[in-house]
Simulated assay, not measured.
Amino acid sequence: MWRIISLLCVFVGPVLAGQGLKDPTQPGNYSAPAAARGGSQLKSIITSPNGNYAVVGDKLLSIGDSIGSARIVAIGNDSIRLSDGKTLKLFQTITER
């Protein structure tokens, strides 16, 4: 019995932790862009009468908030501009070639 439990822990443990799982819709040689791996991917822009907000990684940010060492200086309809001169765009991984 303990052997079965040990085998389950060895084979099911990593799956439950999400390690080694690959997106089945991606090509075999696909590697996520550095921005997506680092958590600084622009996922959404929210516009409201009180101002625009950006969802970067898992955080809701506004103008003046920090992403790493840079600050958000502008939030547009499909991108945000950072103080270090970089621009994060929505769907960048799809549209870049």
Rank of each mutant, 00 (worst) to 15 (best):
Q41W: 02
I63T: 10
R97F: 13
P14C: 10
L7C: 12
I80E: 05
I75F: 06
I72E: 04
N50E: 09
P27D: 14
A34V: 15
D65K: 04
L60F: 09
S66A: 12
L21G: 06
R97S: 12
T87H: 07
C9I: 12
V10Q: 07
G28Y: 13
I63M: 08
D23P: 08
P49V: 07
G57P: 11
W2M: 08
Q19C: 13
N50C: 00
S44G: 03
V73N: 09
N29W: 15
A74P: 00
M1Y: 08
K22L: 14
G18S: 08
D58H: 13
P24C: 10
S62A: 12
V12M: 10
A34T: 14
I45P: 00
G20W: 04
P27T: 09
D23R: 12
A35F: 11
D23C: 09
P24Y: 07
R37F: 08
G28F: 14
G38E: 15
G64N: 00
G20V: 07
D84P: 03
T95Y: 12
G68K: 04
L61I: 10
S6I: 14
S79A: 11
I46N: 04
R71E: 11
T47W: 05
I5C: 10
S69D: 07
G13Y: 03
T47Q: 08
I63L: 04
V10C: 13
L42H: 01
Y53R: 11
G39A: 02
A54R: 01
L21K: 06
I94H: 05
A54F: 04
Q92K: 10
G51N: 03
T47A: 03
Y30D: 08
M1P: 12
L90S: 04
D65A: 10
G39Y: 04
D23M: 12
S40G: 06
F11C: 14
S66L: 05
L16Q: 06
P14H: 05
K89Q: 11
L21F: 13
K59N: 13
R97P: 03
G57S: 10
L8R: 06
A54S: 03
G28E: 15
V56W: 08
L88E: 02
D65F: 01
R3Q: 13
K22V: 15
T95N: 10
P24N: 09
V55P: 01
Y30A: 09
I67F: 05
K89P: 00
I5R: 11
R97V: 11
G38A: 14
K59G: 04
S40N: 13
P14T: 10
D65Q: 06
V56T: 09
I45R: 00
G28D: 15
K89Y: 12
C9F: 11
R81F: 03
Q92V: 06
D78C: 02
L82A: 01
K43H: 05
I67A: 04
F91R: 09
S31L: 15
A32C: 10
I5M: 07
A32R: 14
S83Q: 06
A70N: 02
C9H: 04
Q92L: 11
N52H: 08
N29E: 15
S6C: 11
P49L: 07
T93I: 07
V56H: 05
A17V: 13
S40I: 15
S62K: 14
Q41P: 00
G85S: 06
S62C: 06
L60D: 09
V56Y: 09
Q26H: 13
P27F: 14
V10D: 03
V10P: 01
A74R: 14
A34M: 11
